[in-house]
Write a protein that binds this DNA or RNA. Structure first.
Lengths: 220, 220
DNA sequence: TTCGTCATGTAATGGGTTACATGATTAC
DNA sequence: GTAATCATGTAACCCATTACATGACGAA
């Protein structure tokens, strides 16, 4: 009942950091706005919110203060709006910076990336570089395994491996570009709240091959 | 204790179809040879094997028949070699053909693809096309969501979505090529046991952009 | 004789899902 | 007044993981 450590918690804190919301709305944003996350269900979202409240990272606010005078009904079930506390904000900051051992895995990385707009540049750099080196390890192992088993596998398996490797390679290139852009960006050390003006030189035509990593799954 | 329905079961059956193996070896092949699968742990593998035995899809064979005369030791703990039964083979075939609702998701698809060498052409076609239409649905939703929220998101979120969409688009193109190759291939309807001779015209230079889909994760 | 690797397992836990149950509000 | 969708939740399960425990076998 206490150990919440998943993408969901992270994403909830991140979204709530931008503005208070109630559960239903939260879930929608999880599925659509961010584009990255697989569709979390209410079955996981609501319990998660509860424990975050218990931990003191969130506070519930019952209803948008509808002026008790105009709404005399007693048992009126109101929307529960969740607001991030100071402790919650701090906790989120820690999660961003801390970078546990699995922080570079696909979904964890995607989740972090999704909140880059709220992240300081040095943390962004660490995340991007961490992800990159994780992918490079992956490539290493794939290359090794491929060399070991070459010719002993049928064409389909080979094609699958080749395809997988290319995907990873592409993502590495993508990361390289992002890192370079990041390096060249305004040297200001922190919080570019609205949006990073950088990365505009090259328009969105077709170069700059975007790639595989960030998992996109179905929303509702 | 009865409902085994995961990638693991599928992969185990598929690997065992090629040849009998014991658990330890099985796990290694799961992690490396196939390249696709995330590293399954013994904690999931062995229980899985047990239930498959109970279900009659596998039989255990204790040790490689080391000739009882030469090895008189009584309690000699032997390797347990698992062999696919006829029922097991049939079951695997069903799983391949059946195509439940989540059969087109990333890992399920990758697992199926990994056994294409043992799969009939029409099933291969169905799998590839199923995957493709699933991805196209995904694209549809992504485009819609992007159109809805354009300009209201910061550059990073946008970049992430763009990147995600490109990944999906690339995989669609990859599938298109595979499907075309499949269509053009030898018209023989079934089991190209060793390897499909097709898809050789275009060498592995750089066209035919391979892409994102099949999840590759770390092995041990 | 000790270390690494092969080899097999179990118990507790984790992070999520589905299916279900309920009720309020809005649009027709 | 009824259907869709907004809104909140619970219980049971799923598929896997980690950490742990055991032991055989080969090579240094």
């Amino acid at each position: 009942m206490s150990k919440r450590s998943g993408i969901l918690e992270f994403a909830v804190l991140g979204l709530l950091r931008e503005s208070p919301m109630h559960g239903y709305e939260l879930r929608k944003r999880l599925n659509t706005s961010l584009g990255i996350f697989r569709a979390f269900s209410y079955g996981s979202l609501y319990p998660c919110l509860k424990t975050l409240v218990v931990q003191g990272y969130l506070v519930e606010e019952t209803g948008p203060e509808p002026d008790p005078l105009t709404v005399p009904l007693a048992g009126r079930r109101a929307k529960i709006v969740y607001r991030l506390t100071a402790a919650g904000k701090e906790h989120f900051e820690e999660l961003l910076a801390h970078s546990g051992p699995d922080a570079w895995e696909d979904e964890h990385f995607a989740a972090r990336f999704a909140f880059f707009g709220q992240t300081s540049r040095d943390v962004r750099m660490r995340v991007l570089e961490g992800r990159r080196s994780r992918l490079e390890e992956r490539l290493e192992r794939m290359r090794a395994s491929l060399a070991r088993t070459r010719e002993r596998l049928d064409d389909y398996t080979l094609e699958l491996q080749r395809h997988g490797m290319e995907s990873v390679e592409r993502e590495v290139r993508w990361l390289n570009e992002l890192i370079e852009t990041e390096r060249a960006g305004r040297p200001g050390g922190t919080k570019p709240q609205p949006a990073p003006g950088g990365s505009d030189e090259r328009d969105n035509q077709q170069q700059s091959g975007g790639e595989p990593g960030p998992r996109v799954t179905r929303d509702d």
